[in-house]
Simulated assay, not measured.
Amino acid sequence: MTESQEQHYVLEEQVGYLLRLANQRHLSIFAEHIVDGLTSVQFSTLFRLRNEAGPMSQNALGRLVGMDAATTKGVVSRLISRGLIQMEKDPTDKRRYMLSTTQKGRALIEDTLPRMQQISEDTLAPLTPHEAKQFVDLLKKLT
C-alpha cells in the first residue's frame, strides 16, 4: 500500500470493521436476552432442524446453517449432550445418521422465539423501520 493509499484508508469506514462491530453489538444484546446457555449458532442449528421437513443428516444441517463440517460436529455434539437433538441411523442408508429435535429441543425453541424476535428488534433499534428493512435486504444480498 502506498503512502497515498494509506492516508485515504479510514478503518471506521471499512465494511469488515463495521460488520464486526455490528456483530459484537448483536451478540451483546443476544447475551442479555438468552439465559439458557444457548449460543446464537446453537439456536440457528436447532431452529433449522426443527423447521425443515423431517430428520436430516449432519452434513445437510451444516449447509443449511452455513457451517463447516468441524463446526457442525461440535455444535451437534453439544446439542445432543443437552438432550435437545437426537441422532439415529438412517433407515434407508445404515452408514448415515439422521438428526432430529427432541421434545425438549422443540420446547426450548418455542420458549426462545419471542426473545429472538426481541433481540432482532433491539439490534435494529437505532434504525427507522424503513432503514431496518433495507439493511436486512442488503445483508441478504451479501450472503
Rank of each mutant, 00 (worst) to 15 (best):
E121C: 06
T128S: 13
G66V: 12
V75P: 02
V65E: 00
L124T: 02
L79M: 00
A132L: 00
A132N: 02
T92R: 10
D90L: 06
S100H: 07
Q86L: 06
R95V: 11
A69K: 15
V75H: 04
M87D: 12
T101N: 04
S77F: 12
D68A: 14
Q103T: 10
S81Q: 12
H130R: 10
P114M: 02
L138F: 06
E131A: 11
Q86H: 09
S77W: 15
T92G: 10
K133L: 06
Q103G: 11
I109Q: 08
E131C: 08
L113P: 09
K140L: 12
G74R: 13
G66H: 03
Q117G: 08
L108D: 08
G66F: 02
T128P: 06
K133D: 03
Q117S: 15
I119R: 00
S81L: 13
R63S: 14
E110F: 14
L113G: 01
R106G: 11
P126V: 00
A107N: 05
K73L: 12
F135W: 09
V76W: 09
V76N: 14
S100P: 10
S77Y: 14
A107K: 03
I119V: 02
S77D: 12
A70M: 15
L127D: 10
D90F: 09
V76S: 12
D68K: 14
H130Q: 04
A125P: 08
V75Y: 07
T101A: 06
T101I: 03
Q103S: 05
L139A: 09
L84N: 08
E121H: 05
L139Q: 08
D111I: 01
S81R: 14
Q103N: 09
G74M: 13
E88V: 11
K140N: 12
K140I: 11
K89L: 13
K73T: 05
E88H: 12
K140D: 12
L138M: 04
G66R: 02
